[in-house]
Computed example of a mutant assay.
Amino acid sequence: MGGWNTSNIPDLTGKTYIVTGATSGLGASTARGLAEAGAMVIMACRNEIKAHEVAKTIRGKTQIRVLDLADLASVRAFADTVDHAHGLINNAGVMAVPYGHTADGFETQIGTNFLGHFALTGLLLDRISERVVNVSSITHYIGRIDLEDLNWERRAYSRFGAYAQTKLAVLMFTYELQRRLLAAGSAKLALAAHPGYAATEINSKTQNLLEQIIDLGNRLIAQNADMGALPTLFAATAPEAEPAGYYGPAHFNWSGHPVRVSSNAASHDEKVAAQLWELAERFTGVDFTVHPD
């Protein structure tokens, strides 16, 4: 018996979705699924040329707008172009890159994967009418939030440790956002998704010998990006998706059609989540106040 797939996406005619990082992999597949169901998809991408190439392959309505999540000035400029959207899909990210900094001085991965999306969501939330979906990863299980050293200035840098921290932060942000939406009396939903093990370009940027191992895994055992995007599409569109729901592949969090999945205990730590929220507000300069609808 088949599971949930793009044929189950409801008619999205008249709706608008923002997808960050829609130039390849999961983002491109997510944009395609939404557009082909009738939505207008705003492809928020750093590389305009690549975005136009992807847009040509999508049967549906798309717009391309520049967004560099590693630069808060770019995040603010992009947010200024948005009047309204039904859904925001925070998909873009970098994985296990060498130590570096964003334009604002944050460690590259936390700055791009978490702080950039936190700022974007805070700036746009009053203009998003239905759902915010954050893309996490099974690597969140090994993540640890260090509130005293979020930017790896004192710790010995670990590429995968830094990546895992961002994906745990994304989940904690999702759950905290849903708590605040509920407290404010808002009907909007905050949800999260992960692709399992999907072969995408994010897995080819580690710049070391590990690339060869990952490339072999991509060819032998990974599911494709279209399958990896299904949990995100479910979270973004399925009527049965639940507040603070976390969705991933059915087969051991690895592959298959989307189902609701669990996350680790750390992701549900409300005290740390509130502290992380306050820290992100301070770092980004975004006063993220959740208002009632």
Rank of each mutant, 00 (worst) to 15 (best):
T62C: 08
G105M: 15
Y246P: 07
A92C: 02
N218K: 10
D104P: 06
K271V: 10
L123Y: 04
S74A: 02
P292F: 02
G33R: 03
E240Y: 02
A31Q: 03
R179N: 06
T20W: 08
A92W: 04
A222E: 10
E36G: 08
F106Y: 07
P10Y: 02
G122M: 02
G93A: 02
V66M: 13
A244S: 14
E201W: 11
H117E: 11
V259F: 09
T289I: 01
L123G: 00
Y247H: 11
E278Y: 01
Q212V: 13
R180E: 02
S136V: 15
V261S: 13
G245V: 07
L125V: 01
A266P: 14
A77Y: 06
P10A: 03
H86V: 01
F252T: 12
K61V: 13
A266L: 14
Q275V: 00
E176H: 05
A236P: 09
G105Q: 13
W152S: 10
A229K: 09
G27E: 08
R76H: 06
E148D: 08
R131N: 07
T13I: 03
R76E: 09
R219W: 06
V132C: 00
R127V: 01
S204D: 15
A183C: 01
S262A: 15
G25H: 08
L34F: 14
V135E: 07
G3S: 03
M43W: 11
H117K: 11
G33V: 07
L168F: 05
N264D: 14
S262D: 15
A236D: 05
P10R: 03
L150T: 04
L209W: 15
L216Q: 02
P231N: 06
L181E: 01
